[in-house]
C-alpha cells in the first residue's frame, strides 16, 4: 500500500500534469501567435471566383472545426471535450479523413521502427560500453569507441541524410522510399521487404542510440569497476567473465532502465526525422506531408498525440521499474 502511495501515485500525478500542461500549451500557442490558421486555410482553398457568402459560411465551418467560437474559456472547455472523445478533427490535406485515423494507420510503422531500434541500441550500447570500460586497452573497444564518439555529436538529420545519400542513392542497395513492397498475400517476400525498407532508417536510429548508450554505459561501468565488491572479486580470483556479467553489467543496468524512460522522447523525435528523410510511412512522414500541405489540423493532432504518447510510455516504464529493482519495492 505504501508502495502505491509513495511510488506509483506521484508518477501517475506527474503523468496527468505533463498531459495537462502539454495540451494547454498546444491550445494557447495558436491563439497567441499573430497568424490565423482559419485565414490561412481560407486563402488556400478560396479563389476570387468564389461567392463571398460561400466563403463566409466556410469560415464559420472552419472556426467551428478549430473550436475558435465563443470565449477562450468556452473554447478551452470544448477543446478538452473533443480530446476526451479522441476527436482531433478531420485532416485538411486528406479531407475528410479524421486525423486520429491517419495517425492510427501510420502508428504501427513508427512503433515497429522505434521499438526495434531502441531494443538493439540499448543492448548493443550496454555491452560495448561495459566492455570498453572493463578492457580499456583493448584495440577493438578503442576503435568502436572512437567511431561511436564521433557519430554521437553529429546532428541527427545530417546522419540520416548521409546514410540515404550513400546507401540508397550512390550505392543503391536499399530502397529510397516507402515501408514495404508487394502485397501481404505473399507473406514471406512481404515481410522481407519490410525488413529491407526498415534497415536504413533503423540503422540511423541504432547508430545514434548506441552511441549515447555506449557513453553512458562506459561511465557507469567504470564506477562499478572501481567499487569494492569488484576489487574483492578480482582478488578472490573469480573468472573475469563472471565478474563482468555477474557484477559489472548487473550493477550498471538499473540506472540505464530509468534512463530509457527519458530517452524515449529523444528517440521518438529521432524517429520523426528519420521517417521524413527516408520517406518511411510512419507518423513522422505524415507530419512532413502535413507541413507541405499546410494541414494545420494534422500538425496539431500529431503534436497532441506525441505529448500523450510519450508521457504514457514514460509512465509505463516508471511503473515497471520496481519489478526490476527490489530496492524501490521494499523501501
Amino acid at each position: 500500500m505504501s508502495f502505491i502511495k509513495s511510488y506509483a501515485l506521484p508518477r501517475v500525478l506527474q503523468w496527468a500534469v505533463v498531459i495537462l500542461v502539454g495540451t494547454t500549451i498546444t491550445f494557447i500557442i495558436p491563439r497567441l501567435l499573430p497568424t490565423d490558421p482559419v485565414e490561412q486555410t481560407l486563402r488556400r482553398v478560396s479563389t476570387s471566383q468564389i461567392d463571398p457568402r460561400a466563403v463566409e459560411t466556410f469560415r464559420n465551418t472552419i472556426q467551428d472545426l478549430y473550436g475558435l467560437q465563443g470565449t477562450p474559456l468556452e473554447q478551452y472547455g470544448r477543446f478538452w471535450t473533443r480530446l476526451m472523445r479522441a476527436d482531433l478533427g478531420p485532416s485538411l490535406g486528406a479531407f475528410p479523413t479524421p486525423v486520429t485515423q491517419i495517425i492510427r494507420d501510420s502508428l504501427p510503422w513508427t512503433i515497429g521502427l522505434l521499438g526495434a531500434s531502441i531494443l538493439i541500441s540499448w543492448v548493443l550500447g550496454i555491452i560495448l560500453g561495459t566492455f570498453a570500460a572493463y578492457f580499456p586497452r583493448n584495440r577493438w573497444s578503442n576503435i568502436i569507441g572512437g567511431v561511436l564518439v564521433t557519430v554521437y555529436p553529429v546532428p541527427y538529420f545530417i546522419l540520416a541524410l548521409v546514410l540515404v545519400l550513400v546507401f540508397a542513392y550512390y550505392i543503391p542497395i536499399f530502397p529510397l522510399v516507402g515501408g514495404s513492397s508487394g502485397s501481404p498475400a505473399n507473406l514471406i517476400p512481404y515481410l522481407l521487404s519490410i525488413l529491407q525498407h526498415a534497415f536504413l532508417p533503423a540503422l540511423s536510429l541504432v547508430l545514434i542510440g548506441t552511441a549515447f548508450r555506449f557513453i553512458v554505459a562506459r561511465a557507469l561501468a567504470s564506477t562499478v569497476i572501481a567499487s569494492d565488491p569488484v576489487t574483492y572479486a578480482e582478488m578472490a580470483g573469480i573468472a573475469r567473465r563472471r565478474i563482468l556479467f555477474a557484477y559489472v553489467v548487473r550493477n550498471s543496468l538499473l540506472p540505464q532502465i530509468t534512463d530509457l524512460g527519458l530517452a524515449i522522447g529523444a528517440l521518438f523525435e529521432g524517429a520523426l526525422i528519420t521517417e521524413f528523410v527516408f520517406s518511411y510511412p510512419g507518423v513522422g512522414y505524415r507530419l512532413y506531408t502535413a507541413i507541405l500541405q499546410s494541414d494545420f489540423n494534422m500538425i496539431m493532432g500529431i503534436t497532441l498525440f506525441s505529448i500523450v504518447g510519450i508521457a504514457t510510455a514514460t509512465l509505463v516504464i516508471d511503473l515497471l521499474y520496481p519489478l526490476l529493482d527490489p530496492r524501490v519495492r521494499y523501501r
Binding site: T26, G265, I291, T303, S306
Partner: peptide, 16 residues
C-alpha cells in the same frame, strides 16, 4: 523533460 520538443517546435514555427 517529458514534453516532446520537435512537434511543439514544428507547430510553433509552422504558425509563424
Amino acid at each position: 523533460i517529458v514534453m516532446p520538443r520537435l512537434p511543439l517546435l514544428i507547430l510553433i514555427s509552422f504558425m509563424i
